[in-house]
Simulated scan of single mutants.
Amino acid sequence: MSSPATSPIPSRDTEHAAWLALVVTGLIIGIAFIAVYVGLQRDPKPRHLPIAVVGAQLSTALRTGLGESVEITQVADASAGVEATRAGDAIGVLDATSPAAVRFQYAGAAGFSESGAARALVAGAAAHAGLTVQESDIVPLARYDSRGLSAIYVVFGVTLSSFVLAQGLTGAAAKVRLRHRLYAMGGFAVAIGFGAAIVAGPIYGSLAAPFPLLALSLTLLSAASAFATKALGAWLGPAGIGLAVLLLTTVGNATSGATIGYDLLPGWAQAVSAILPPGAAVRAVNEYGYFDGSHAVSSLVVLAAWFVLGLGLVLLKQYRTDRPATAAPAIAEPQLTAQGA
């Protein structure tokens, strides 16, 4: 009578390594989340805020008084400055209406932090020169997005749900075929992209981007997030999932430019924001919603690149995994035949 097979008992070191890795990963993610979000909120300072200014004298005075806080573009007249503001090339346009007054026409849709910083800088410079300031918001936020935060909430929701799906499918790799996992992530990207666009657009009226372009941006965001998470998990295991949390839901959303304007972020955060999916998605949604999509294509390219790269890495990993398995029968078959003979 044969004895029943018994499963090997894991050593105490193996058990300790398993839970210690989870604890350390959780601590790293939690501390990084707090450090990045709270750190960026501490003392944001404007860096090269783009402002259009009419006239050489006013341009020189503003550039001298504000230094690197602003990036002055001299324009021929107020109309040219308004056009630049509506295209998203400037936060506002400043021109003199009389010897004792200036007018600042700004884009509130650039975000409370950026437009607020620009208004404060202009007001300070005008007060120093003894001038009064007349303000007007020529690109206001959508009626149902009074704080300008809808974009970050929608982007965060799409990113998080796509990450959770990819994480779950990575854990179920032994039970679900690769092509079905890929179909699930692709189908989910379309569903969440259109679903989020319907809720935030036509239903709530919180995002002003045209529906097809809003849905496209959010679909690409979901695909970028899910396939990037899947690729990191496939190549790096649990560490890859932790890295996806740090890149997408922590650093990516904190530096997206929605809560702290892009031009108020430190240099490292600006560099990161430009290449991570959440930042690209926030810019695409706002560009299409308020600035005629003048710079949105580059953001869509970033999202598409993350999706394509993630898909490519997943397929490459599967190819490398399957290659030895397909080669093994060709070697083993002659041995079996010989034994049978």
Rank of each mutant, 00 (worst) to 15 (best):
A76I: 13
S225Q: 03
P334Y: 05
Q57F: 01
A189N: 09
F211C: 00
L66F: 10
S162I: 00
G39Q: 07
A87F: 00
N253M: 10
A35N: 02
I91C: 00
D292F: 14
A197M: 07
D145I: 03
F112N: 14
G171E: 13
A284G: 08
L303F: 07
S273F: 08
Q270E: 13
P99H: 12
S79M: 00
Q335G: 06
L265N: 06
D322H: 06
I192L: 05
S273A: 15
L336P: 04
P50N: 02
I260K: 01
L207R: 04
A21V: 10
V133K: 11
S299E: 13
G242V: 06
A107D: 05
A32H: 02
G108Y: 09
L265M: 10
P44W: 10
P140N: 11
A215I: 12
A96P: 09
A226M: 06
G67K: 11
T229N: 02
A129M: 03
K175R: 14
Q134A: 15
Y106E: 05
L247M: 14
R177F: 06
G257R: 00
T255D: 06
L66T: 10
A184W: 12
D77Y: 01
R119M: 12
T73F: 05
E114L: 12
P238A: 12
V53G: 05
Q74I: 10
D77R: 00
G195S: 07
G279D: 09
Y288K: 01
V245L: 12
V75W: 01
W306M: 07
G293D: 09
A52G: 04
A78G: 01
A56F: 03
F112A: 13
F104Q: 09
I34T: 12
A96I: 09
T159W: 00
G279Q: 09
G312A: 09
S206I: 00
V102N: 03
R103P: 11
E71H: 13
G279W: 08
T249K: 00
R179M: 11
M1E: 11
